[in-house]
Simulated scan of single mutants.
Amino acid sequence: MNTIGLIIFMVVTGSLIAGFTNMLAIRMLFRPYEAKYLFGIKLPFTPGVIPSRRSEASTKLGRIITGHLLTPDVFIDKVKSPETDRFIMNFIDRQIRTIEEEKLSIGYFLERLHAGLSEKVITGFNAELENKISEESEKLYISKIEDLMPRDAMHTIDMKVAELRPQLTRKLEEYMASDKGYEDLYTMTDEFIEKRGRLAKSLKYFMTKENITLNIRKELMKLIHHPKMVDIMEKFIIEEYRRVKGRPVNDFLSEDDKDGLVISISSALEARIDVRSLLDKPIIEFNREFFDSFKERGKYTLKDNTINYLAHNMGRIMDKLQLAEVIKKQIDSFELAHIEDLVMDVAKKEFQMITLLGFILGAVIGLFQGIVVVLL
């Protein structure tokens, strides 16, 4: 082989080897997608670089994106931008207009969140109401009467009880001085005389029943004003009053009475607080002045508070969203063929240049080797 032929041969050989090596290296970035085995032994370089490092690459890519690209500061700047301000304001205006024109209710929004949520709210509210009443009734059921009364009310009752004895004495006087009192005394006197034998009956021969009745009434009048009787009555009233107010409620109410009272109170409150009607009532009808005020001024405060909340809590929100994990899962869910097509579409020209560069470098190296061989 002559000198020129040798050099051309080495140039072509070097170019082909280098070019096809680069083509194979690019191909092996993705191919094969799965590990290949020969006689049970895993072949080297299988699967390709990207398939074998897919999980590690997706994890690092997620961290890079969330750590350097989609950072909380980026979102905060976006949230505070004029575009976001206008977007949130337009959104609030649309919602206000829809609520006003279509007369939407709280129940409507609850149903939009989840079907049947309104009914669950009503049932839950009534159940909670009954539970609270039942809990309080249990406490009240074992409480003393005096502990249930407000201090001012208890003081007023104490004063009224202190005035009870004179009132009872006055009532007794009025009763005995009345025709009804006289008739009752006369009847009792007559029964007493007729049922006490001959000695008692003989009294009517000395005194008439009318006189006996009048004398008894006179003595009773003296008795109720006697200092000792007054003292006995006052002590009895005070002791009974203290005993009653020191007793628990369950001394006066049975368990059935208490349960019935709880049911009655719960039913009355449920009817009074008609949650269903409140949920079905249009929002603008709750308080028209408040709604108009919110439409004119309050919406701006809501917009500012929303932006401030998002800005101050963006870090926590992103932590909750776990964007790095989301990105990793999305990348892992892609088919390798799809990822390969995406990479090839993006870097097609660059890979072609790498292949071409391989051919050129191979040719240059072949030329250099050919010259060295000829010279030696």
Score class of each variant (00 low, 15 high):
2 N>D: 14
10 M>W: 03
13 T>I: 15
14 G>I: 01
14 G>M: 02
17 I>S: 00
17 I>K: 00
17 I>T: 12
19 G>E: 05
33 Y>Q: 04
38 L>A: 06
40 G>L: 02
45 F>W: 06
52 S>R: 12
58 S>Q: 02
59 T>C: 03
63 R>Q: 08
64 I>G: 02
67 G>M: 07
71 T>M: 03
76 I>E: 15
78 K>D: 12
87 F>N: 08
95 Q>H: 13
102 E>N: 12
104 L>R: 11
126 N>A: 06
131 N>G: 13
134 S>H: 04
137 S>Y: 01
141 Y>P: 05
142 I>M: 06
157 I>P: 03
166 P>M: 05
188 M>Y: 14
188 M>G: 03
199 L>M: 11
216 I>C: 05
216 I>L: 11
219 E>D: 09
221 M>F: 10
233 M>E: 07
239 E>N: 14
248 P>V: 05
257 D>G: 09
265 I>L: 13
267 S>W: 01
267 S>V: 08
268 A>G: 09
271 A>V: 04
274 D>E: 07
284 I>H: 01
303 K>A: 15
304 D>A: 14
312 H>T: 08
315 G>A: 09
319 D>T: 12
324 A>Q: 11
333 S>R: 15
339 I>M: 15
349 K>N: 09
350 E>T: 08
357 L>P: 02
361 L>P: 00
365 I>G: 04
365 I>Y: 05
